[in-house]
Amino acid sequence: MGIYIESFPSSSQEVIEGRAIDLANATAAEILSGIQNAGIVGLGGAAFPTHVKLSIPEGKTCKYLIINGVECEPYLTTDHRVMLEQQEDIFMGLRYLIKALSPQKVYIGIEANKRDAFEKLEQYKPLDLAVEMVLLPVKYPQGAEKMLVTAITGLEVPSGKLPIEVGAVVINVATTAEIGRLLPHGRGIQERVITITGPGIAKKGNYLITIGTPLRFILDQVGAEDIKEVFMGGPMMGVSVSNLDIPITKGTSGIVAFKPQQTLENQAEYACIRCGACLDACPLSLNPSQLGILAKNESYDLMASEHHLLDCFECGSCSYVCPSNIPLVQYFRVSKSIVRKRQAKAKS
């Protein structure tokens, strides 16, 4: 038996320190390579390389640059902390981004319950920067790129496409701050802010943690006791870990620990009672109820061709609300990977 390891096509980053990027004289291409050399990725959790995201495809232009200050998940407060403490870095990063993309409009989206961050940024906003700050309703998954683009510009990102299709580029606020902090000095990314929380943690809070720190060490420092479940990321999309001897990565936005009583074990599953809660919860207005029934029947192709399975971005809202405890998003994850495999096979 052999294992075939395929590298992620955009894993194109190697941190190269020592090449400071001078904002006044740098070209767009130099800024992009500066970001690449600094090793900066989307710090909201997706960890997609930022220089790849900023490379606008042929024939498209960036009309809207949107800075995402909306926390990607409940429980996480890293973006909030960054906005309260690193205004200067954020606006410096913004200058680099504006120079790299030359957008027509620049927005910062913040949730309405983070008025303090909104006011802080408003207060520190340089007079020469034309930035519009937008307060948005607090509603998971408002921090998802497509939702944010629609909330701010009113445009819908077409199915299966990226926000650049409608001229939008979305960059997380912590990523922006990191650009502003590192590029002027030619340094590379070494640490990030992580929310450590959950009922199993004694000293909850946001911590600046060096990338590569072992999870076990961190949990010891924050007083984790009697924990049954630990996941990296937020409670809606985070991945639970089986082993504490793993390192923190650039994409770790949160660490949440549950005690035994909080875990969702042994919940009885009932039949779908057609309550419609999942339809109301789905941000894309898909029909999770119908998709769930089809998944149980293994009608994966029908799910994709008629019911937009591949649009589902696995936010988990449908599973969260379902009173019958049907593992909807769990079905969709499996179904999506089956459909993708079938499609790849059909192509080759």
């Binding site: 074990e265 009173p323 405890n325 998003v329």
Partner: peptide, 15 residues
């Protein structure tokens, strides 16, 4: 540790 897939939260209302 228990492993399960997300979401790890659930609205407290069952059928």
């Amino acid at each position: 540790l228990q492993i399960r897939t997300s979401p790890h939260l659930k609205r407290p209302m069952a059928t």
